[in-house]
Simulated scan of single mutants.
Amino acid sequence: MAKHSYEFKKQLVSEYLDNQGSYASISQKHGMSSSCQLKTWVAAYKKLGDNGLKRSRSRKEYSFIITLIR
């Protein structure tokens, strides 16, 4: 389960992009221990839009044997 919802991420990213504060001030305001995660979300949003903030639903697991063959 994702720690933060899409809506929460979108709200913080929007606040930052609307110049409502710095990474640190917005993170602190919403109870996050560090601003690093917000920086990551902003970068993902700038590159991929809303999809950058959504949790990936595809599993990327490979068996050990298949990885050895490739």
Rank of each mutant, 00 (worst) to 15 (best):
M1L: 05
A2Q: 11
A2C: 04
A2G: 00
K3F: 00
K3E: 09
S5G: 05
S5E: 03
S5L: 01
Y6E: 13
Y6F: 10
Y6M: 13
Y6C: 14
E7N: 11
E7G: 12
E7H: 07
F8N: 14
F8I: 04
K9G: 10
K9C: 05
K9P: 15
K10E: 06
K10R: 11
K10S: 03
Q11I: 02
Q11D: 02
L12S: 08
L12A: 09
L12Y: 02
L12D: 02
V13P: 01
V13W: 03
V13T: 06
V13G: 00
S14L: 07
S14Y: 08
S14T: 08
E15T: 08
E15S: 09
E15C: 10
E15V: 06
Y16N: 01
Y16A: 00
L17E: 01
L17S: 00
L17M: 09
D18F: 07
D18K: 00
N19S: 10
N19I: 04
N19T: 05
Q20A: 03
Q20K: 12
Q20H: 11
G21T: 08
G21P: 15
G21C: 09
S22E: 09
Y23G: 03
Y23N: 03
Y23C: 02
Y23R: 04
A24E: 10
A24D: 09
A24Q: 09
I26W: 04
S27Q: 06
S27K: 03
S27D: 10
Q28G: 13
Q28C: 12
Q28M: 11
Q28I: 15
K29W: 01
K29R: 14
K29S: 09
H30V: 05
H30Y: 05
G31M: 14
G31K: 13
S33W: 14
S34P: 11
S34W: 14
S35D: 14
S35T: 12
S35F: 10
Q37Y: 07
L38S: 02
L38C: 03
L38T: 02
K39I: 00
T40V: 07
T40N: 08
T40W: 13
T40P: 00
T40Q: 03
W41Q: 13
W41H: 15
W41T: 13
V42P: 00
A43D: 06
A43F: 02
A43W: 01
Y45T: 02
Y45G: 01
Y45V: 02
K46I: 00
K47P: 14
K47I: 00
K47R: 01
K47L: 06
L48S: 09
L48I: 04
G49A: 11
G49T: 11
D50M: 15
G52Q: 11
G52H: 10
G52P: 06
G52I: 06
R55C: 04
R55M: 08
R55N: 05
R55G: 01
S56C: 11
S56P: 05
S56I: 15
R57S: 07
S58M: 13
S58P: 07
S58W: 13
S58D: 13
K60R: 07
K60D: 05
E61M: 11
E61R: 11
E61T: 07
Y62L: 05
Y62F: 13
Y62E: 04
Y62G: 02
Y62S: 03
S63G: 02
S63F: 09
S63C: 07
S63Q: 08
F64R: 08
F64Q: 11
F64E: 12
F64I: 10
I65F: 05
I65L: 07
I65Y: 02
I65H: 08
I66S: 05
L68F: 15
L68P: 12
L68I: 12
R70Y: 12
